[in-house]
């Protein structure tokens, strides 16, 4: 820990860190995603071959992580907009963060079956 770093942000700082980390991750995924989709201009076989790897259980887990990052970034982004443009936004930033986290948890629970279901069927048989 560098000397003199007494500042400890609470919800505000950690949501900022999470927003930044998820943003960078999503951006790097976006590059790859545009490249893999560009394969439709090469041939249907090449595209289907690459997309087939996206249907494996390991990548399904990565997809679940991607959904987690995107959902947090989207919900917290709306909170940032509310903090910036809503007159009472800064006062309720903490409550809004916990609403974001709660909604995110609910959506992540809801995403388990659609995103990971096919992987579970493959691993454990249907």
């Amino acid at each position: 820990m560098p000397a003199g770093t007494l500042y400890r942000g609470r919800e505000g700082m950690w949501s900022w860190v999470a927003h930044r980390v998820t943003g960078v991750l999503i951006f790097f995924f976006l590059f790859v995603h545009v490249l893999d989709t560009a394969l439709v201009r090469v041939s249907p076989e090449d595209y289907d071959k690459v997309v087939a790897t996206y249907k494996t259980p390991i990548v399904a887990l990565l997809e679940y992580g991607l959904v987690a990052a995107i959902l947090f970034h989207a919900l917290n982004g709306l909170r940032v907009i509310a903090v910036d443009f809503w007159s009472k936004g800064p006062r309720y930033q903490k409550q809004m963060l916990w609403s974001v986290v709660g909604l995110w948890l609910v959506l992540m629970l809801g995403a388990i079956y659609p995103v990971l279901g096919h992987a579970a069927r493959e691993l454990f048989g249907s």
Partner: peptide, 27 residues
Amino acid sequence: GVVLVVLVLGHLLIQLVLDGGVSKIGF
């Protein structure tokens, strides 16, 4: 950001949730 929330979450819903999720995707 506001526009992307709609576009991207709609995209995720179509690609990963509806009609059998990622399994249906192909050329």
